[in-house]
Amino acid sequence: MIKKIIVILAMIGLIMMLFPLVTNFEFLENLNDLSTNYVSGSVNELNSQNVVTSVIVTYRGLDTLGEVTVLFLATAAIGFLLKKKKTKKRGSSELLQTASSFLVALIILLGVYIFTHGHLTPGGGFQGGVIIATAFLLLILSDVNIKFNHTILQVVESFSGAFYVVIGLIGLVLTIGFLNAKIIPLGEYGNLFSAGAIPIIYSLIGLKVGSELTNILDTMRGE
């Protein structure tokens, strides 16, 4: 009873706190200076069509490196806490397994398309990585007894992470800044091979996110 009263009082307090934020809110009429700089820089400096991609990969690349590290730490903690027990169960029918193994290749192709075109269309490494992980989820769901080769997952994950940092360090060696996309010639605006190193960095992020999420799904599935 007393707990309910405290909860209701806390909610009333929160509503009173948030109410002036809504009523006094003034929407922007124009972009602020930082956003204007990012939008024009994406066209003039980086040759990248998608402004969000150029901010994530180049202008705030260090934050993305930290984000990928947080994802890696969460994966490691989940794998450490949930230990797997092994039991054998009756598998699903041959028809389902064959059909889903055809679909897996197509879904992975879609994921690769999304993260290689991250600088031209909406999408990028994180979305493409998640789609690759869902392809492996289909494999897990259709065949209960499937075992993934964890060495390959670990090799893909650590090599893409290491190459990501190496590309950043090349920028430092050439003295144009950490994780700068201009270490490779920029190419023609709107082509697949444009925007410098952005497609390469985003592909590495996509592989890393895909293998980490596959690892999380494989651990959470358990027995």
Binding site: L28, N30, L31, N32, L34, S35, T36, Y38, V39, S40, V51, V52, V55, I56, R60, D63, T64, E67, V70, L71, A74, T75, A77, I78, L81, L82, F126, V209, I216, M220
Partner: peptide
């Protein structure tokens, strides 16, 4: 710059969604 919406909130939310997945998975563990 006069024709597009602000890209910075999109970037922040993109980061926050991925971190949110990791945090939710850890909480469920």
């Amino acid at each position: 710059a006069q024709q597009v919406v602000d890209p910075i909130p999109s970037v922040l939310v993109l980061t926050a969604i991925v971190i949110g997945l990791a945090v939710t998975a850890l909480m469920l563990t």
